[in-house]
């Protein structure tokens, strides 16, 4: 894509930090009451009312095969653009917005904490942390089950 730096929104799921390009993000809203839909796939949490519009919401924890946790004050829904439609991602919290140098983004390793490289765009080191940059389109399109590496979780 483009050169130089880009802004990334950094969010947490479990013990991992993930990044999405800010240009993909419409807005970040607080957790809202979710209406479940019958027969939907497990990770598809349901729909929410965002100022009169209905937005579909994906539970990234479930998408990554993590156990459910009680929502906290930090829980957020990141509304992103997916194939021209708004989709919300439930995340444990949004921590910061970082300027990330394109050059600092490394290619993803073959398999990262259990996530296949199909779903990764790259990783970047920020201070002590590793931020995983997700390939949202592949992640949302695929129905394949993903399991974040439990051992890795424990070690963190």
């Amino acid at each position: 894509m483009s050169e130089d730096t880009q802004q990334m929104i950094i969010f947490d799921i479990g013990n991992e930090k993930f990044g999405i390009k800010i240009t993909r993000v419409h807005e970040i809203i607080r957790m809202k009451e979710i209406t479940e839909l019958p027969d939907s796939s497990e990770y598809f949490a349901g729909i929410v009312n965002r100022r009169g519009d209905i937005v579909s919401v994906v539970d990234l924890r479930k998408r990554f095969g993590l156990e459910e946790i009680v929502e906290t004050d930090n829980t957020r829904i990141i509304i992103i653009d997916f194939q021209g439609k708004d989709v919300g991602l439930i995340v444990d919290g949004v921590s910061e917005v970082l300027h990330i140098n394109e050059a600092d983004i490394d290619d993803p390793p073959q398999s990262m904490v259990g996530i296949k490289d199909d779903y990764l765009q790259g990783i970047v080191k920020v201070d002590e942390d590793i931020v995983i940059i997700l390939d949202l389109d592949n992640l949302l399109e695929s129905k394949e089950e993903i399991e974040l590496d439990k051992e890795k979780q424990g070690n963190e």
């Binding site: 027969d39 729909i47 519009d53 209905i54």
Partner: peptide, 27 residues
């Protein structure tokens, strides 16, 4: 009637969503 973005392809039983006066969603 508001369209529901069909991320999970098997929600044929629901034709759409509607926002009620109290902000909650009816299917």
């Amino acid at each position: 009637i508001k369209r529901i973005n069909d991320l999970s392809e098997n929600i044929e039983k629901i034709a759409g969503g509607a926002i009620l006066g109290d902000g909650s969603i009816a299917l």
